[in-house]
Design a protein around this nucleic acid. Structure first.
Lengths: 231, 231
DNA sequence: CCAATGCTTCGAGGGCGATCGAAGTGTTGC
DNA sequence: GCAACACTTCGATCGCCCTCGAAGCATTGG
C-alpha cells in the first residue's frame, strides 16, 4: 500500500521540533510570514524556508505571496484537526476533569470557534442577521457577500479587498452547524470577522475550550455595527 | 515550551514507515504479537522490538505479556483518533482518482471498524438515520446524543448512564469517515453500539480485515431497533 | 534437561535530513 | 538606483536513528 508511505511522510513532517512549533503556532488560523515562523521555531531563515516548502508541497500549508512577505497558514481544517489530535496526546494527563455534559455543552451551543470562524448560536445568529439585512447570501453549499455587505465590512474596519486579493482562499462559504443545524459563515470573511471580534474584545475564549462568550460591550457592538440581535 | 518536544516526539514516532504500518494495522482495536507486527511492517524482529518499545514508552501502545507472546494494542481511543486524522490527510487522492475498487476495498467502503466503532457506508448510514430521527446531533467538530436518543439506546439494551459514569471518555463525538467524507458516530456511545452489534450477531468481521458485513438479521434489527435503512 | 520459539539487547554500519554559511533573487522605500 | 529587507537556493557538515547480524533471556513442549 503506497498510502502508507504518505501516512509516514505527513507524520514525519509534524515530527520535527522546528516544524512542530510552526504548525502549533498556526493553530489559531492566522497566516504568518516565513520570518515569524523561523523565529517561532528557533531556526534560521534558510532552515525555515526548507521546512515551509516541504510542508507546503505535502499539502499541510498554503502560502500566499504578498509583496516581499510570504504568508503561510494551515491548508485545511483537517490539518488543524490532526495537529489538535497530536496535541491532545502530547498534553500531560489533563484528563482529570471529566468534561460533564452540563454548563460546558451549553456554552458550546451558545458560541464557539469552528477552526477559525464562529459557530453555535452566536455564529448562526450573525449569519442570519447579515442575510436578513441583505449583506450576505448563504445556502447549504455556497455563499456570497453582497455589495452592501462588502460596504458594511469595510466600514467596520475589515478589509474585504485584501481578503479577496489573497486569491486562493474562498472569501465566503457556509459551514453546517451541528447544534443549530443551519449554515454559519465560514471562509476568509468568516475568519476575518472572528478575528475582528476577538481583537475588539467583543468575545472571549473560555479557558481550555472552543467555547466563546460574548462580552456586554460585544453584544452592543454586534447589534450596532452588524445589526445582530442575540436573543 | 517543553510540550512541543513531546508533540514532535509523538508525531515522529508515527513518521517512520515501519511504525506507521504497525499503528494502522492496530486500528481495528485488536492486540497483535510482536512477530505479527514485524511481518506487517516488513522488518526483522529486532527492529520491530525496538519500535514497539519506543511506542509503548511514549504511551501510544499498551503491551500485555501472555506466555511467550507479547500482545500490543493502541493505548487509547485518542491514539486511534490521531492515526485516523493522519490517514485522512494521507488519502487526498480520493478526489482526483476514481479509486480502483477491488473487492476488498469495496468491502471496506461498505462497512468497517474504525478502532472501536463503526465506519464506512454502514457507520455513516447509522449516524444519518439517528440524526434524522432526532436521536443524535453530529457536526464536523462536536456532537451530542439527545434525550430521545438516550431513551432509544437504553431501550435497546445499551446502558448510557454507565457510559457517562465512566467519566473520562467523551460520550459522543464525530469521526470523519475517509471513504464517505462525512462524520460517523464515535466516542463511548459509538463503541458501545459497535459492541452491541457484534454481540447480537448483527455484523460479522471479515477474516483478516477491518471490514464487517451486516447479516440479514442484523439488517432487519438495525431497521426495527434504530430505524436504520441500509440502501 | 534440551530444543524450539518469541522476543530483547548489543553493536556496527549506513543513509537520510536538519542545520547553517554563503550567495542569489525578488521587493520595498528613499 | 542603491540599500535594506524578505526569502530562497546551493553546498557541506554532522548527528541521529533505522536497520540487521549476532548473541542473550524467557517460555513452552516434549
Amino acid at each position: 500500500m503506497p498510502n502508507n508511505a504518505r501516512f509516514a511522510e505527513i507524520a514525519a513532517l509534524a515530527g520535527d521540533p522546528g516544524r512542530a512549533s510552526m504548525l502549533t503556532g498556526l493553530m489559531d488560523g492566522r497566516a504568518l510570514t516565513a520570518s515569524e515562523l523561523a523565529r517561532l521555531a528557533g531556526v534560521t531563515a534558510q532552515t525555515a524556508s526548507s521546512h515551509l516548502m516541504r510542508m507546503t508541497e505535502a499539502g499541510l500549508l498554503l502560502v500566499e505571496k504578498q509583496g516581499r512577505h510570504r504568508y503561510h497558514r494551515l491548508a485545511s481544517p483537517a490539518v488543524a484537526q490532526m495537529i489538535e489530535s497530536i496535541m491532545r496526546l502530547a498534553a500531560p494527563a489533563v484528563d482529570s476533569k471529566p468534561v460533564r455534559t452540563g454548563p460546558r455543552d451549553a456554552a458550546l451551543r451558545a458560541g464557539r470557534t469552528c477552526y477559525d470562524h464562529l459557530a453555535g448560536h452566536l455564529g448562526v445568529s450573525i449569519a442570519d442577521s447579515l442575510i436578513d439585512a441583505g449583506h450576505l447570501e448563504l445556502g447549504i453549499d455556497a455563499g456570497e457577500v453582497t455589495a452592501n455587505g462588502i460596504h458594511l465590512f469595510e466600514s467596520a474596519g475589515i478589509n474585504v479587498e485584501a481578503l479577496t486579493a489573497k486569491g486562493s482562499r474562498i472569501l465566503c462559504r457556509p459551514c453546517l452547524d451541528w447544534s443549530e443545524r443551519r449554515p454559519h459563515l465560514a471562509g476568509a470573511i468568516g475568519a476575518a470577522l472572528c478575528t475582528h471580534c476577538f481583537d475588539k474584545g467583543w468575545i472571549r475564549r473560555v479557558e481550555g475550550s472552543r467555547a466563546v462568550t460574548v462580552t456586554p460591550n460585544g453584544r452592543r457592538q454586534l447589534r450596532e455595527t452588524f445589526g445582530v440581535n442575540l436573543s
